[in-house]
């Protein structure tokens, strides 16, 4: 799967909703604070609908302002996965074998794929109506 690395992006870079952006944690030299170009790039990710994925090597990587705005987190070490689940929720955390940015293509396909025509809640409504209606009759 094709993806972008945040360190290679500059404001104005064309982003796509189907191409995630990986964000190394601060322990791997990734951005920690929401300042300068990092904010502008993250704003463009959000506008484009591109998923941002924190690559967390260490528990401290989960506690930065940049981590707070990433849509998903990936971690390899069990203690980091556990803390990430506590902070971000089970549905946003991906246990992986390696959090090296170079290996991200191996598992990024597990992320929910964007569906521009049908948002998640609309699917949810259809599901609800489908399941509840039989019980009403």
């Amino acid at each position: 799967m094709r993806y972008e690395r945040i360190g290679a992006l500059r404001p104005g870079h064309a982003l796509r909703p189907d191409r995630p952006v990986v964000v190394p944690g601060k322990s791997a030299g990734g951005p920690e604070h929401l300042q300068g170009d990092v904010v502008d790039v993250l704003i463009e990710c959000e506008r484009a609908g591109a998923a941002t994925v924190l690559l967390a090597s260490d528990v401290d990587d989960l506690q930065t302002p940049v981590a707070a705005v990433c849509r998903y987190a990936a971690a390899a070490r069990p203690e980091v996965v556990e803390e990430a689940v506590r902070r971000f929720g089970a549905e946003r955390v991906y246990p992986v074998e390696s959090v090296e940015a170079a290996d991200a293509g191996d598992w990024l396909g597990r992320l929910p794929q964007p569906d521009p025509g049908t948002s998640r809640w609309r699917r949810g409504v259809r599901t609800i109506l489908g399941r509840i209606a039989p019980n009403r009759t």
Partner: peptide, 18 residues
């Protein structure tokens, strides 16, 4: 609503997303 108490969790998640 009739049936909601017995509905699966993803039904509740769908409602909470509205």
């Amino acid at each position: 609503a009739p049936g909601l108490a017995e509905a699966d969790l993803d039904v509740w998640q769908g409602l909470l997303n509205q």
